[in-house]
Write a protein that binds this DNA or RNA. Structure first.
Lengths: 228, 228
DNA sequence: CGTGCGCTTGACTTTTTTCAATAAAGGTGG
DNA sequence: CCACCTTTATTGAAAAAAGTCAAGCGCACG
């Protein structure tokens, strides 16, 4: 049963016994998703949540004029939609597949039953939510305390931590998406990128590759000690 | 034992049996706090979390230049610092008492043990974290999609929902703090407030009282359909 | 080989911040 | 109860940051 392997690969569930995974496999539904597919919309009832097993999914909000703010880009292994399910409210944002892939769907009632009987699963759930809350805190801090150059510097620095140090870094999103993730628009991003290159903070290669040329300079920018 | 009553009054714990509350009372520490008192600082190790029982506490971040962004103002009954505790990381922000009051401190290890043996407590915990995550989502949306007038309109509207409908509403924070909560500075807030009054959207009385004079107008502002 | 979409650039407008000065409130000690 | 002092709030003028609108480039894809 391939669902079991998929479950076992989810960080949220590691440490669970074979039996527990099998119980869980009984309640989940596998669903393939194609690029551009809307998985749920803001306001939809949260009858269950999802875990991404393959592909990438963006979680975003829409303003009345149709401008979108990307909250998060999910990568395989991450759950999404749990907040609505556990808070007992409709989904607060949209979820759309950025590439072909697949998700597992966990129906609300059955999953709650599972948690109720499984303390270590609930602790994992709590830890996962806490971590996400912490990330959101950082986003709020960044949006409200820093200007766009600082937020972009943050982004490059954290990209540098994930991927190797002073290698060429690969942007995992389009620049339009990156702009939205940073709470700005493509034009502004483009200008700031150009200034960063001119100031020797970064180098670019093609559309999606960047190298940090002056880490200290970026850190000063992120910290607000320098301006572009 | 007064701690028991304090515990029973916390929404997070309602539905727990007398015995469960007593078990919990064994592990909590009561601590009185005075106005201005720093409860924890960003970077402190999270050895446990707090629940506010009396007074008000602000949770905030500091930028390198010392500008502060208030993330949340806690009112009695709300837990804070849990994120760090469950994520196993240091506190990501500062907590400072705005008034005299008191808190209960829950040591990490003992509380985790409690949760492990109490499924309904863990579900409550999960629900609480989910709700907070949902609020943060709204804050991020507001910061990145709306301009200051829209955020302020949001604030008044939600204040109107909490307190009675068309009554005079009482601001629970100073205007400096409100500015920080909205991700802006006092001067900007002051100007926008003045414009809102001139446009007949709100009335003010003294420094801390506001009445919504044109709810529809505010809603249009919040939705971006109108500009000031 | 053209069409389309993502990206960039320029000129202009709007929004917000900064700096500086003033005004109003609130608390304290006489 | 009042004068004084500190903190908090308002206002103006100028600068900076970001957003809008419009045009143009370039690369991928059919």
């Amino acid at each position: 049963m391939e669902i079991i392997e998929a479950l076992a690969a989810i960080p949220l569930f590691d440490g669970l016994s074979r039996q527990e995974l099998e119980d869980m496999a009984m309640i989940v539904l596998r669903q393939d998703i194609t690029r551009g597919r809307l998985i749920f919309a803001e306001g939809d009832a949260g009858t269950g949540f999802y875990v991404l097993t393959e592909g990438r999914v963006k979680i975003f909000k829409l303003s009345p004029e149709g401008k979108e703010q990307i909250l998060h880009i999910m990568t395989p292994g991450e759950p999404f939609g749990e907040v609505a399910v556990f808070a007992g409210e409709p989904f607060p944002a949209y979820a759309e597949a950025l590439e072909d892939g697949s998700v597992l769907f966990f129906p609300r009632a059955a999953f709650i039953e599972l948690i109720r009987n499984n303390p270590s699963l609930s602790l994992k759930m709590i830890a996962m939510l806490s971590l996400r809350l912490r990330k959101f805190t950082a986003v709020i801090e960044s949006l409200s305390l820093k200007e766009v150059p600082g937020r972009l510097a943050d982004y490059f620095l954290s990209l540098g931590n994930e991927q190797g140090g002073d290698q060429w870094l690969t942007l995992d999103v389009s620049k339009n998406q990156l702009a939205s993730l940073l709470g700005t628009i493509p034009e502004t991003l483009s200008r700031i990128l150009a200034r960063m290159v001119k100031e020797g903070l970064i180098e670019t290669r093609g559309q999606r590759q960047v190298r940090i040329a002056d880490r200290m300079g970026l850190e000063e920018l992120a910290g607000g000690l320098r301006r572009l």
